[in-house]
Design a protein around this nucleic acid. Structure first.
Lengths: 321, 321
DNA sequence: CTGAAAGCGCTAACAT
DNA sequence: ATGTTAGCGCTTTCAG
């Protein structure tokens, strides 16, 4: 099933087939001919061979998304779906590279193997990786270290958490950090928002503790917060929040009366934790389509870098605060 | 940086470059020449262009994994990593297609766009989708409806759950099904294992209830189980298990004294639920490498279909049973 | 043992 | 407005 077959079947030349199937602008092809070609193509079940197209055009229509193994929950899924759909609308195809350590190495190899034109990450790629990626054939890599922050700025979520606690009357805030080092980058960003919120409210910066997913260890952290008279905890995410909740339970305390905790991400189990977890949710769907637009703009030379896309986190009130 | 550049730099022909870089067997190339080529290639940072290679060879080295949006937890991540690594060892590259509904449609489009030679799913592809995929250029698609079951059989996990409960003295078992319809296929497989275990022990089949991630609704299910004197619940997965736990708490009961619950998957938060969730974990790493071997075997014509790969689930004892 | 030559299926100048 | 032609970078018979 090649383009020539279609040309033959439609009684036109190969070029014409290419023109109409790619909807090449600046060509005035009679609707009559156009229709014949389209009809022949679909009748024959013609699918252009991606490799040939990429080779000839000098660039593929593959967008590679580097997905770190992070528990971002359903939000990230929606983001990916929306991104894929929006990209597809522009003729681009999204595939993902799942890696525990989203460093360089395997990513650039995959990039070369799939002949990706664009590589997208959730957090900025270090300059070293960016160069590696370009060497592997990527035309555009976003986000990069230099030009901007993460795909979407997550300080907002730390800020919303702290603001909520503060509005509820808490004056001494704690921040529960994850213990997994890969999460630290993202955690610091979220923490920053909480720090700012406290500063704006004239409060001390949150007292941080790293939390392990283990009730006994979480209990220790809770105790330390208590001795510093912390009454409200912002957790990096819902997993950590649930661990903190386990910690307060293990120390014989109860949330929210003794200590309030607010999570982030609104994972499915947040609603069924004990007590039900108050958390902040955010919708990444719009980020997905905005990202896609940015990619298209850069690819077409209409833009240099992808803009930062704000998110608007919203607290989901349940009973842990 | 093309193959000709390397040939020029190494003072050999293009053909020779291709031969040594691909380690083509049946050619006796002097180590001297071989070394010169390799050296030149690495010095120039040569990367063969995937599109050109795929076009000429008639097949790419891309393996596409269809990842449904299911909360399979960390296990799946390990599987993907291992699969990717094992595939890479054979010169194949793994990329993922993330889709909420892992039906046909977009999958086959992505397959065509990335020019994948192999498409792998977690659960069997319906015959219709298999054909679509082949039309999109996939040489091998696994698992298919006809030939075998899922990539790894998960009945085992239902069986292990029920066996554990039975060993603890429970005679009336309940099974907590997810309410999301996309999960039903997999849930039924797991349930089947529990049903078998009960049958083998001479017990009635588990009483099933669909569970929503919502304490009040879960409580209703718990009450119904109670009136049927169920004392032990197997949950489809840990999320559902945590919801059941919330249900027993909401009805004023406590686990495990009033009712025991065992989950599946061992998600990170299982350790910090209240009470800590007893669950069954399984290691998919070996499945990953076995799958990769099967793919290579099929691609080389040494095998027809991929074998079913057994998993050995193990219960992680905590305090909900 | 190495090189020359013919495409793989498609795009894009260039010609008609 | 359509067809002709020349590659894209690589693999792979087939000669030398």
């Amino acid at each position: 099933m090649t383009g020539s077959d279609v040309a033959l079947a439609a009684g036109v030349s190969r070029t014409t087939v290419s023109f109409v199937l790619n909807n090449r602008p600046g060509q005035s092809i009679p609707d009559q001919t156009r229709r014949r070609v389209v009809e022949a193509a679909s009748r024959l079940g013609y699918r252009p061979r991606a490799a040939a197209r990429a080779l000839a055009a000098g660039r593929s229509d593959i967008v590679l998304l580097s997905v770190p193994d992070l528990p971002l929950g359903a939000a990230i899924t929606r983001f990916v779906e929306e991104l894929a759909a929006a990209l597809a609308a522009h003729g681009l195809t999204l595939v993902a590279h799942l890696a525990a350590t989203h460093g360089g190495g395997s990513l650039s190899e995959v990039c070369a193997s799939v002949d990706a034109s664009v590589v997208i990450g959730l957090t900025p790629f270090p300059q070293r990786v960016v160069e590696e990626l370009h060497r592997s054939g990527a035309d555009v890599v976003i986000p990069t270290d230099k030009q901007q922050g993460a795909t979407f700025p997550t300080e907002q979520i730390g800020r919303v958490q702290a603001d909520y606690l503060i509005a509820k009357g808490h004056r001494r805030i704690g921040y529960a950090l994850p213990d997994r080092p890969e999460l630290l980058d993202m955690a610091e960003e979220r923490l920053r928002g909480a720090v700012d919120a406290c500063a704006d409210a004239g409060l001390d910066a949150p007292i941080t503790h790293a939390i392990t997913l283990n009730p006994a260890e979480a209990a220790r952290a809770v105790q330390r917060w208590r001795t510093r008279s912390v009454t409200g905890i912002c957790a990096y995410n819902d997993e950590i929040a649930v661990a903190v909740l386990a910690g307060v339970h293990a120390t014989g305390l109860t949330a929210p009366s003794d200590i309030a905790v607010i999570g982030a991400d609104d994972i499915p189990t947040a609603a069924v934790s004990i007590p039900a977890l108050t958390t902040v949710a955010f919708d990444l769907r719009e980020v997905g389509v905005k990202r896609a637009e940015a990619v298209v703009a850069i690819l077409s030379g209409a833009a240099q870098h992808a803009p930062l896309i704000p998110i608007t986190p919203q607290v989901v009130e349940r009973s842990s605060v």
